[in-house]
């Protein structure tokens, strides 16, 4: 197994508040790893540090053996990392197809002028990305909506479109921020299968934040538990379920204990 992502004691401080302290993630190629914890534990902050939205106050992030600490988000995406957002961030007024096509833009080799003039090199690359986007939409069951506005899709499909868009950047590592938020048990179940499927089909490694324990326990190879920014437990689903500290963090400590 090769190590894909490694964070070396990354810490994020906002003024006097330490949102995440000394986080050491290690994610191997092909794994599905979950990041869980009560509200405000610093999970999304950790995501934002890894994807370059925030620059960690301390620590280093290595991604496929390169130091990516402090790189801009778009460069990190170019290195092969893509994400979805906790509160969906689609390009609302644009069509479903355009949403996915835009995620191909980072691979465009044709220059600005070549693109405007639609010269052969641009046309060739454009046709390739249209094909790829059509395939992704087909694969994710969105092709019948490809000309609709992204904002007109129902909630569950918008989440799917976000994943399709992220996949179009050809990621090695996919970060999902609460993919099951707002879904009913049936949809949650489907999503669990779906995440496994795309992992296998696109040879992905997945890091996800999730509150639905059925999803987390069902698909994760390993779980990291954060509480108030501190990593309180690491392990496979079974050991996490029986970990005293984790139970305390979620349920609180009994007075008599």
């Amino acid at each position: 197994m090769t190590l894909l992502l490694k964070t070396d004691g990354i810490t994020m401080k906002f003024g006097g508040l330490t949102a995440v302290k000394d986080l050491n993630l290690e994610i191997n190629q092909g794994e599905i790893v979950a990041l869980i914890g009560p509200n405000g534990a610093g999970k999304t902050t950790a995501f934002n540090m890894i994807t370059g939205v925030y620059k960690p106050t301390e620590g280093k992030i290595h991604f496929s053996k390169k130091d990516i600490t402090g790189l801009k988000p778009h460069l990190i995406t170019k290195h092969g990392m893509a994400r979805t957002f906790q509160n969906i961030r689609l390009f609302k007024e644009l069509s479903v197809m355009d949403n996915v096509l835009i995620a191909n833009h980072l691979h465009l080799k044709a220059s600005y002028l070549e693109s405007i003039l639609h010269l052969p090199r641009y046309r060739q690359q454009k046709n390739a990305s249209v094909k790829k986007s059509e395939f992704l939409l087909e694969r994710l069951g969105l092709s019948q909506f490809k000309d609709e506005k992204a904002s007109s899709l129902p909630y569950g499909l918008q989440r799917r479109l976000e994943i399709a868009r992220a996949l179009a950047t050809d990621p090695k590592l996919l970060l999902l921020d609460e993919p099951a938020a707002g879904m009913n048990p049936k949809e949650t179940d489907d999503l669990t299968h779906f995440i496994k499927e795309i992992r296998d089909e696109f040879q992905l490694t997945i890091l996800l934040i999730e509150h639905h324990m059925s999803v987390v326990m069902g698909i994760s190879d390993r779980i990291y538990v954060l509480d108030h920014g501190i990593t309180i437990a690491v392990g496979n689903p079974q050991s996490i379920q029986n970990d005293q500290k984790v139970i305390e963090a979620y349920l609180g400590v009994s007075e008599d204990a």
Partner: peptide
């Protein structure tokens, strides 16, 4: 018309729609 139809034109619109998402999709703001 040509510019807006091209990949760059779409990238411009993506920035208009949502800067954070655009940047996460690899578009250098």
């Amino acid at each position: 018309v040509f510019l807006i139809k091209s990949s760059y034109g779409k990238a411009f619109k993506a920035i208009r729609e949502d800067e954070i998402a655009a940047e996460s999709m690899g578009i250098g703001l």
